[in-house]
Simulated assay, not measured.
Amino acid sequence: MSDDEVRVPTGVGMTAIGVAAIRAHESRRDDRLFDDPLATRFLAAAGWTAPTAAEIEPRRARWRMLLVASIPIRTRFLDDYLRAATDAGCRQVVLLGAGLDTRAYRLAWPDGTRLFEVDLPDMVGFKNAVLSDVTPSCDRVPVIADLTDDWPTALKTAGFDPTAPTAWVAEGLLVYLTEEQNESLLTDIAALSVPGSHLALTSLDPGRLDAIRERHADGPTHSVVRLWRSSAPEDPVAWLARYGWRATAYDPAERAASYGRPNLFDAFENPPSSRGLVSAVRI
């Protein structure tokens, strides 16, 4: 694979490389919560190397430890959500801001599942190039679109059926959009969702967002935090109810304990929001 075939994403896209690194790390654990054998491909293509302990400033080390702890929990939560949603009859799946998600390849999907991955051109191009020789386990449809623009038209043009029950995922996405853009996103999702559709998202509440911004305002992790534009509303269940969803919020610490990792976040000053994982059904 030549250099001109693979263009590494920049800006927000580089955060997806970091997530892939954490998923690759989790996949090497004996007690792993999931297995993502393709994650290392993205790291190799991006020329990514793990920093040594000596290279990590203490605040950055704590930040990295929190991400290494929390991202596998949300990944497992959403894996389980998608299995349940397809078992409930959703054969149409949409990953919004899909990044380097490999669920189209690593999960066992029911026959007839069609999975749409919506993201920007550089991310879609990078992922397609890196995985060009790998066959997905469902009908994977990449969709090039900006989620702050008319992405529903691009989705429907790619073959999305707005009359079919859909399982939606917005993982690690909302924090990169403004409050107005998140409201617009929820409006568009609702307009495309028939009753019986499912939705899952990850949420960061306003208090934790403010605390993280203050703590990392001048540190080495500022390059990531400065990309964060807003939080979800403090009550994500009430927020989704306004758009016609019956939602349930889950505490990542409780989910971690149920996966065999109790007390995972006890040592962190700013642990994940107690309502940081959300799933919902369209009513």
Rank of each mutant, 00 (worst) to 15 (best):
E117T: 02
T102A: 06
T86D: 03
L67S: 11
P58S: 08
L96S: 01
D111T: 12
Y81N: 02
R74K: 03
R60C: 04
T113A: 09
A61Y: 01
G89M: 03
V93A: 01
F77Y: 07
P51K: 14
S70W: 11
R106K: 12
I73E: 07
I73N: 00
A108R: 14
A108Q: 14
P58G: 03
R83I: 03
V93D: 13
T86H: 03
D79R: 00
R64H: 12
L66I: 10
I73Y: 01
P58C: 10
D119E: 01
S70R: 06
E117M: 05
L95T: 03
R114F: 07
G97Y: 15
L66K: 05
G89F: 02
G89N: 08
T52W: 01
F116T: 12
G112A: 13
R114L: 05
D101C: 06
E57F: 04
L67H: 06
V118Y: 07
L78P: 04
L120N: 06
L67C: 03
L67M: 14
A85S: 11
R114P: 00
P58T: 10
D122G: 05
L78M: 13
G112S: 11
P72S: 04
R91Y: 10
L78W: 04
W109Q: 12
L95H: 12
R83H: 09
P121N: 02
G112F: 12
A98E: 13
S70N: 06
W63N: 07
R59M: 08
E57D: 08
G89A: 10
A84F: 07
L120K: 13
R91P: 02
T52Y: 04
